[in-house]
Design a protein around this nucleic acid. Structure first.
Length: 461
RNA sequence: GGCGACGUGGCGGAGUGGCUACGCAGCGGCCUGCAAAGCCGUCUACACCGGUUCGAUUCCGGUCGUCGCCUCCA
């Protein structure tokens, strides 16, 4: 049995995965706030945790993956107002688009995708527990978390309370400084304000929850307290995850999660890709241009904890890597066992994933396997490569052209190929080359091998 | 200002106290009518300055630079 090591933000080191329930791993990852379509950066945690789930299942664990959708939030109100629409309508539409866009990645869905708007009762109960326990207080219809009531506050993000910037946002149209006991306190419940078109009832009056308590409630509802892995982007470590952790300690007297995993940012021209900076690459556009396999390949080309450079050429590189694998698949014996003396690469592949989910190191092994298979030529079974690709979410990759599957090629192409062979046998290479160009225009590429010419779909990733 | 991460060959990106990462691109070769695909080779990388060490890209200190967070941005 492989020991799975994961980097934990709180301890700053690697922890061995040791599930709360023997073979059952609970994972909660923070999903998007649905005020616009998601971008490639938002796709990183979705892909990382979806693939981590696949890997853990490969290792014999059962996995319960929860990725929430934040559909009640200031940003949604702002975006809806700017568009002159109802916020709930915008959130519903963007939730649908989020699911549609991530569906196209071909990785399936998480096991649960809770909505904040459908978790209101547990959220209000949670806040009540905090108030009852003296960890939160009502002020003018708002409810705030008493940060200094949690002695461990700061332990996740490694910050000292005295070092925190306590300045209030001067541009905030609804200053809260006067209502808070302490500038560090954060909102659990926000009283309804004019212009906000959704509201829920609570013991403190109508309003809506703060972001942090939404996630705590959704996570606890589906996974309980003390689940195995809590994940998300590194930009959420503070304050979002710090606050989640504090809420759970205060309300339940226990840690919310055992391991806190954070993925690095996707970077465009050296800077973080963020909606607020307007330098976004929408996921659906990237998918439409390069296809799901190249996008997934791109996202796993760096270690999940590191920042990852984003550019056209990075996606093109990824598409070429996918192409190399497809080509290799084409030469392999379909659905046959792989040579045992190549298995050390496969073992190393999974070992790399067990070592803090090191996908680039795993990919290196996969490509070593591919090269060895190519070296050996015919007769190599595809099972090992299939096994590796399956865990990477690339299991649907099909060979460029299954031998003998001639019926899928249009008859015109077949006859062109025959005419080219005719020309070649007559040493009329000019004509032969013209036909080759013709076929390329039709999307077919000719490869003259020892067993005669083959047609494969043209590269045009 | 505080906290954290990081600076690897043309690009992306792993990793290690001494041994080819890997991929893409380029170049040379094999194969081929020519290509494509593939294979072989090559491009002799580890920001800078000190220190520890038989030996450092890898450990320690400093310098410069970059990025993230400290405002509900994955």
């Amino acid at each position: 049995m492989r020991e799975v090591l994961l980097h934990d933000t709180r301890s700053g080191g690697l922890l061995a995965l040791s599930p709360r329930d023997a073979w059952r791993v609970g994972i909660y990852a923070c999903g998007p706030t649905v005020y616009s379509r998601i971008h490639i950066g938002n796709a990183r945690p979705f892909v990382v945790f979806s693939l981590l789930k696949r890997f853990l299942e490969h290792e014999g664990y059962g996995v319960n993956l929860v990725i929430n959708i934040t559909d009640v939030n200031d940003k949604i109100y702002d975006a809806a107002r700017a568009q002159g629409r109802a916020s709930a309508e915008l959130a519903a539409e963007m939730s649908d688009l989020y699911r549609a866009d991530t569906d196209l990645l071909g990785l399936g869905r998480p096991d649960h995708e809770p909505l904040a708007s459908e978790t209101m009762t547990p959220i209000v109960d949670y806040i009540q527990t905090l108030v009852d326990g003296g960890h939160a207080y009502e002020a003018g219809g708002d409810v705030y978390f008493r940060v200094r009531s949690d002695p461990a506050y700061g332990s996740l993000s490694h910050r000292q309370l005295e070092n925190m910037d306590q300045g209030e946002d001067e541009l905030d149209p609804h200053p809260t400084a006067q209502r808070k006991e302490d500038p560090l306190d954060f909102a659990l419940w926000k009283a309804h304000k004019p212009g906000e078109d959704t509201l829920w009832q609570s013991p403190w009056g109508p309003g809506r929850p703060g972001w942090h308590i939404e996630c705590s409630a959704m996570a606890e509802c589906l996974l309980g307290v003390g689940f195995d892995i809590h994940g998300g982007g590194s930009d959420l470590v503070f304050p979002h995850h710090e606050n989640e952790a504090a809420q759970t300690r205060a309300a339940r007297g226990a840690e919310l999660a055992k391991v806190w995993m954070h993925n690095g940012m996707i970077q465009l021209t050296g800077e973080k890709m963020a909606k607020s900076q307007g330098n976004i690459a929408p996921l659906h556009e990237v998918l439409a241009e390069y296809g799901p396999h190249a996008v997934v390949m791109y996202l796993i080309s760096g270690h999940y904890r590191q920042p990852l450079a984003f550019s056209q050429s990075e996606l093109e590189d990824a598409a070429r890597r996918v192409h190399r694998i497809r080509d290799a698949l084409r030469r392999l014996e379909q659905e046959r066992p792989s040579p045992p003396d190549m298995a050390h690469h496969t073992v190393a592949f999974f070992d790399a994933l067990a070592n803090d989910f090191n996908t680039p190191a795993a990919l290196a092994e996969l490509f070593e396997w591919v090269r060895e298979a190519n070296r050996r030529g015919a007769g190599v079974g595809d099972s090992d490569l299939r096994e590796m690709l399956g865990v990477l979410g690339l299991g649907e990759l099909s060979p460029l052209q299954a031998d003998g599957d001639v019926t899928s090629i249009d008859p015109e192409a077949i006859s062109l190929l025959q005419r080219r062979e005719q020309a070649r046998s007559e040493r009329d290479f000019e004509a032969a080359d013209r036909i080759r160009e013709d076929l390329r225009g039709r999307g077919w590429e000719i490869r003259d091998g020892p067993n005669g010419p083959e047609l494969v779909p043209a590269t045009g990733h």
